[in-house]
Amino acid sequence: MKISKSIYFFFLPGVLLYAIFFIYPTISALFYSFTDWDGLSSSFQFVGIDNYERAFTGDTIFRKTIGNNLKFMLVVVVFQTLVALAFALIVLKNTKTTIFLRALYFFPTILSSVSVAFIWSFIYDPSLGILNQTLELVGLDFLRQNWLGNANIAIYSLAITQIWFHAGQMLIIFVAGLQAIPEDLYEVAKIEGATKWQTFRKVTWPLLAPSATIVVAYTTIQSFKAFDLVFAMTGGGPNNSTQIVATYIFDIAFRSYQFGYASSISVIFMVIIAIITFLQFKALRSDRISY
């Protein structure tokens, strides 16, 4: 059926804004990544692949940053997914209590990262904080820590905050996925005399794979983009031990005004995220099982 040409006007405002404020800057970032632009002066020089070379060979902080990001990601992805799945299985059935609990567990998701950062800075506070006070109360004084000030553990403290922040959201995705599994499959398993574990392994797990992939994919990307939380809680410190790629880019660009170099790191960052997204989309496709 022929459609009136007026349809093209529907694209106009959105595409125009998208082109000016998103596509143009994104492509410019690629361009500037080959320059020594400082962001302020109008002149800059092409430096070829120098920036990329520096990122991969000369910049030890960048290497550390990638390591921190991987640590953070690993802890968050593994524990957040396990917590979300375990609790989703418990609050699966719709009763008054479970509906209330799901709403409660989901609650932190609607807060701003800055609010969550303040709440957890207080929890982790070495002298005032509830964490150290509780440890003292139960006689575990020796576990007292400067949770955000100790370079060895600060990144894990941040990971726990991130899990508190977003596990509820993942739990809800799991609940939606689990509730979509037809009840009769469980009845068949019961009649056949399957144990609880067998039922989980053979019925629940394969049918859960799509939502599990979504959760893992989302959590992975979220943990790479956890800019706000890190920025507000530690600012990347102490001694760059909590610096992740997103905060590092901000630092090089807006604290030391190396826009060219920051652009090249941001391009590397984009490639990393694109690869992860691509792999996970592929996994999502191959995991689809239907009975």
Binding site: F21, T26, A246, A253, F259, S266, V267, F269
Partner: peptide
């Protein structure tokens, strides 16, 4: 797929 940190500098 593009993180905000990519476009933010030229933006």
């Amino acid at each position: 797929m593009v993180p905000a940190q990519v476009s933010m500098i030229p933006l």
